[in-house]
């Protein structure tokens, strides 16, 4: 009886859905890790995702090729990241203010352009999307095959990205430099690391990855852009990054947990648990984690502080 109860909520179908829900969060939270590990707060992830979602759709619309659209999303997200970098690093704009401005700008920009280019309100025309693939061999493995054997290529890209970011951050000299800049920029500068350049690259990368996360929504999961379609996922990605303690695998775990909450909410609603309370879980867990009740989440030491060369 209780076993049936559990398998109703935790089974391969739900976990496969959780992975799909987690994918945009994984991309954006990896982006967040790049930026924040270099010492730049990035609450603009939401706006970068939204821009990526829109530009991914737009480039796909003109080229008829979602893979080219993906490149468009990557570049446009990177450009928004560059704006944040110039503001935060060059002009020492308060990083939270800059992120807020970017989030508001992205909402205005995407709706404005959607209406100007297509003369429609709400949703864009349909465009081709990146289609789901079946993995040979893997999909025949019981359970695991059901979860990861038949997914969108971007889901696999997200999982690979986590490994790549982990190796980059903790097993390469560039990753070490990036972390040094975020923890102790003056010391990093003293040993010859270019703090400004490092932060520029990190924040641009951050935007590019968030842009990919947004594009997943518009040209992989769905095949059109809708107004404000990111719907706060940039902030959930931020939460996943914090809950995962600014580490790639931690953020992956958090994104999976939040994706799972997302995937299971309808089933919980059926047994009388209002889905709105399930939707609150990522945010409340993040506050709990920050408060230190479940192993304290501590941000990089020099986060939010502009660096001034002496």
């Amino acid at each position: 009886m209780w076993w049936e109860y559990i398998t109703y909520f935790i089974n391969a179908t739900v976990l496969a859905a959780a992975l799909r829900m987690a994918t945009p969060l994984i991309f954006a939270s990896m982006g967040g890790i790049f930026s924040e590990r270099s010492g730049v707060i990035n609450i603009g992830l939401e706006g970068m995702m939204l821009t990526g979602a829109f530009m991914g759709m737009l480039v796909t619309f003109y080229t008829n090729n979602p893979w080219v659209g993906l490149v468009g999303a990557l570049l446009s997200g990177g450009i928004v990241g560059m704006v944040h970098a110039v503001a935060a690093v060059r002009y020492k704009v308060d990083q939270v203010v800059s992120g807020t401005a970017i989030n508001i700008f992205a909402v205005g920009f995407t709706v404005f352009m959607l209406r100007t280019i297509f003369d429609v309100a709400g949703t864009s025309p349909a465009v081709p999307r990146i289609r789901t693939v079946a993995l040979p061999v893997v999909r025949h493995i019981p359970v695991i095959g059901e979860i990861i054997g038949y997914q969108n290529p971007m889901v696999y890209m997200a999982l690979i990205l986590v490994v790549v970011v982990h190796i980059f951050l903790f097993h390469t000299v560039w990753g070490l430099r990036l972390r040094a800049v975020g923890e102790h920029p003056k010391a990093a500068d003293t040993v010859g690391i270019n703090v400004f350049l490092t932060r520029y690259i990190a924040v641009i990368t951050s935007g590019a990855l968030a842009g990919l996360g947004g594009a997943y929504l518009s040209i992989a999961h769905l095949s059109r852009f809708g107004d404000e379609m990111t719907a706060g996922r940039g902030f959930i990605a931020l939460a996943a990054m914090i809950f995962g303690k600014w580490t790639p695998f931690g953020a992956l775990g958090a994104a999976m947990l939040f994706g799972f909450a997302d995937a299971v909410q309808m089933r919980l609603q059926e047994v009388g648990i209002p889905r709105h309370f399930v939707q609150m879980i990522p945010y409340i867990l993040t506050m709990v984690a920050l408060a230190g009740f479940i192993g304290r989440a501590t941000p990089p030491k020099s986060i939010g502080k502009p660096y001034e060369k002496e």
Partner: peptide
Amino acid sequence: PRELIVIIQAMIIMFVA
């Protein structure tokens, strides 16, 4: 489109800061 206003407001935030 009215969203021009949102763009202008975002730019004001960025420039003031």
